[in-house]
């Protein structure tokens, strides 16, 4: 199987701090990591390779340092990596990003499968995966929680929706976005880390992928971020600290009154 895994490098958002004046993120000292939800895509690709043989190509678009994310993916078991990095790509929204990635993926035709994380934890859109599939005109599905069968020209997958799970048969080549439930991502092995360190990661620009320039970067991006603001942090709620049993009883009565006032009961 030839599998392609598009990944994104994101800021470690769990301890992100915001500038209260400007409402922007303080990037100093913020570590860059592989989008945590991409780890499930990488792991699934490696599992499939271990079971069916084949090779895995990791592809990412971002600044030069995004090479680190590609090396980390290689240390987990991916074979090769390509970084799309050029000032012409800067400022891309999901339309331009999915276009650039799809152009690069075309260079690796024929492939069997593209696996993406459900969404990136910074932008949180989940639009790039389906976008790539639409540009490539290949079948796709989202929220995949299990790959049940891999056949000659199709796969059977399980997709999580609000009320349960769909079982789908999808023709290959196809694109899947996967969710956390699908596996437990492994840690990089020592051998993997050594391989990743030595690997040459190619950096490609617009000409390498035959991209139309007006489809790239800020120019090729229909959406504009016009304002960043800080969400209301505190709701200023009533916080009770009962000191004894009767105060606790009152606090619970207060909760029941609250539920009644809000017409929840």
């Amino acid at each position: 199987m030839k599998i392609i895994v598009p990944i994104k490098q994101v800021p470690e958002t769990s301890n992100v701090s915001m500038d209260p004046e400007t409402g922007t993120m303080i990037r100093d000292g913020v570590e860059s990591i592989i989008n945590p939800l991409d780890l499930y895509a990488i792991e699934e690709a490696v599992n499939l390779k271990e079971e069916h043989g084949g090779e895995i190509l990791v592809i990412s678009m971002g600044p030069a340092k995004a090479e680190m994310a590609i090396r980390e993916a290689i240390s987990m078991g991916c074979d090769d990596g390509i970084l799309l990095s050029n000032k012409e790509f800067a400022g891309s929204d999901t339309l331009a990003t999915s276009y650039a990635l799809s152009q690069a993926i075309k260079k690796f035709n024929p492939y069997d499968l593209i696996i993406c994380g459900e969404r990136a934890t910074d932008g949180d859109t989940g639009q790039v995966g389906p976008g790539i599939a639409a540009w490539l005109d290949i079948p796709f599905t989202t929220y995949v929680s299990n790959i049940k069968e891999v056949n000659e020209n199709s796969m059977i997958v399980q997709r999580m929706v609000e009320t349960g799970y769909e079982i789908l048969e999808i023709e290959t080549p196809c694109l899947l976005t996967v969710i956390k439930e699908i596996n437990y991502p492994r840690l990089p092995s020592m051998r993997g880390k050594l391989l990743a360190k030595k690997k040459e990661i190619k950096t490609w620009g617009p000409d390498d992928i035959g991209a139309k320039k007006d489809y790239l970067g800020l120019e090729g991006s229909p959406t504009r971020v016009v304002k960043i603001s800080k969400p209301k942090v505190s709701r200023g709620g009533e916080i009770l600290m009962p000191k004894n049993e009767s105060e606790l009883d009152k606090a619970v009565d207060g909760l029941i009154e609250y539920l009644q006032k809000k017409e929840i009961i």
Binding site: S14, V16, M25, D122, R224, V225, I228, P231
Partner: peptide, 17 residues
Amino acid sequence: RPAIGGNILATIMTPKY
């Protein structure tokens, strides 16, 4: 919409499309 783990609210427009 909220972004970056709900740390910010981004206001977005699509002026030319």
